Simulated scan of single mutants.
Amino acid sequence: MTPGTLLISQPFLGDPNFERSVVLVCRDERASGTFGLVLNHRTELTLSDVLKLPLGPASPAAALPLYLGGPVEPDTLHYLHRRPDVPGATALGQDVYWGGDFPVLLDLLTTGALDAADVRLFVGYAGWGPGQLAAERQARSWVTHPASAGKVFTLATDAFWRAILREKGGRFQAWANYPVDPRLN
């Protein structure tokens, strides 16, 4: 699977970690598996809650919200941004980059060279061992939306899952309207 692909969970996936989730695939390698970030599970935490910043609460990065990137290693920080000049960043397509030198990213935010709206921070990540995601896709747990990394910064987080399904159209558009618990319908 190509980095920059979105994985959209089917409405009744049954895994609370990925219920109504949209995951951005950052890396997919046959030998090591797949690494992705859940895009639409925002936490109540900000960067200053988990990291001591050089300017403290006055830092432009202090109020950046943290998203739950997935259930794996929730004590790690990952980030997406729109700066190709951050050393070590991986291009995901559509002017979206993953990772890179975090002090450089913080400096760009502090100096105003990078707008806070062009950064997403994640604690933890979504990971699949070799062949695991392929099996889940074959079981139709996930729908793919290729070459869609740019949507990270264009769709509202709380409506991301529904919006991307509506954009796909057809039966997926109907999925967007499925109730969370059909017994309550």
Rank of each mutant, 00 (worst) to 15 (best):
A174L: 08
L68I: 01
S148G: 06
W98G: 04
V72A: 01
Y178E: 09
P103W: 11
R82T: 09
L7D: 00
L92V: 08
H41D: 08
T111S: 09
R171L: 10
V22E: 01
V25F: 10
R120T: 06
I164H: 10
R137L: 14
L77Y: 09
L7Q: 00
V25E: 02
K168A: 15
G14M: 06
V152D: 01
D95H: 11
K168F: 13
T111P: 05
A163R: 12
L133Y: 11
Y97G: 05
P3D: 12
D101Y: 09
F122K: 04
V143P: 07
P87K: 12
D115M: 09
T144Y: 13
L64R: 00
Q132R: 08
R27Q: 14
A113V: 02
G70V: 00
A113K: 08
L53Q: 02
R140I: 03
A91K: 09
Y97H: 13
L24E: 03
A139Y: 04
N17Q: 04
L39W: 15
M1N: 15
G70E: 02
E29K: 03
A63F: 00
P65C: 01
W175T: 14
T90C: 05
P146G: 00
Y79M: 14
L105K: 06
Y97E: 13
F35P: 02
T2R: 14
S9V: 07
L64M: 09
T110H: 05
N40R: 11
S9M: 06
F18H: 03
T76K: 01
R42F: 09
W175R: 14
A91T: 09
Y178S: 14
V25R: 11
P11C: 13
L51V: 06
A31L: 12
F172Q: 13
N177G: 15
H78A: 14
V23H: 00
W128M: 13
G150R: 04
M1A: 10
F35L: 15
L68E: 07
R140Q: 14
T2Y: 02
V104W: 13
H78M: 07
L114N: 03
L133H: 07
D75Q: 13
G131W: 03
L6Q: 08
S32V: 05
A156N: 12
Y97D: 12
Q138L: 14
A163D: 15
A135H: 07
S141T: 00
V50F: 07
Y97F: 14
H78K: 00
R82S: 08
L47Y: 04
A163C: 05
P130W: 10
F172T: 11
P103Q: 09
L47I: 03
L106Y: 01
L106W: 05
S48W: 03
G14P: 12
A135F: 10
W142P: 12
S141Q: 09
G100W: 02
L53D: 00
G169N: 09
D75A: 15
R82Q: 13
V123D: 07
T76W: 01
V96F: 10
T43R: 04
L39D: 05
L6T: 06
P84H: 15
A147E: 08
T76Q: 01
R82H: 07
L68T: 05
Q173V: 11
Q94V: 09
W161Q: 08
P87A: 07
P103I: 05
P54N: 04
V180R: 14
L37T: 07
P11E: 15
L47D: 08
V86W: 06
